[in-house]
């Protein structure tokens, strides 16, 4: 696609693109990856601690501790987003903060804050799930597809 577009450009335009590309600031991919790895890992460590907390002090098993842990982590990230702390961490860590479940809480609350001035119903209410809506939709859809594949594999393929 990009190559096709480039062919249609005039020589001057192509020259300009090459000129601009040379002067663009390079994306520090490796550095970003390392940051995301460590901050994302730290979030997961906190999540594991929360999970152990629920197991130790309540009657949750390793299996059942998952739900309250996710709820707690999302709630924590929502509060941190409200205080503006999560945004700063995200600035530093990028995908490390967006990929864990805490990123979901951040997406909901930051959209809500952004559209607060448009009113509660048409602003917050309708825009809150602007970002998170796609997460929910495609998450549910992906789960459905995988369940379908698993069902077929187990029923007809003899797997599991």
């Amino acid at each position: 696609m990009a190559d096709e577009k480039r062919k249609n450009l005039t020589a001057v335009q192509q020259d300009y693109q090459a000129f601009a590309k040379e002067r663009e600031t390079k994306r520090p991919v490796l550095k970003n990856c390392i940051r995301a790895f460590f901050v994302g890992g730290l979030i997961c460590v906190i999540g594991q601690a929360v999970s152990y907390f629920y197991m130790y002090f309540f009657d949750f098993t390793e299996q059942t501790a998952g739900n309250p842990t996710v709820a707690t982590m999302v709630f924590l990230s929502m509060i941190l987003t409200g205080f503006g702390i999560y945004d700063r961490i995200a600035q530093f860590a990028g995908a490390g903060t967006a990929v864990p479940v805490t990123g979901f809480g951040n997406a909901v609350i930051s959209a809500a804050i952004e559209h607060r001035t448009e009113g509660f119903v048409l602003g917050v209410g309708s825009n809150m799930f602007k970002l998170a809506g796609s997460v929910i939709l495609f998450g549910t859809f992906a789960a459905f597809v995988i369940a379908l594949i698993k069902t077929i594999a187990v029923k007809w393929g003899g797997l599991g």
């Binding site: 601690a49 929360v50 907390f53 941190l80 205080f83 702390i85």
Partner: peptide, 19 residues
């Protein structure tokens, strides 16, 4: 201020987890 709040939150998390 922000740093203090962050520090407090992180610390409290660890303390609660290891009580």
């Amino acid at each position: 201020m922000m740093k203090k709040v962050t520090l407090l939150l992180v610390c409290s998390l660890f303390i609660v987890g290891c009580a």
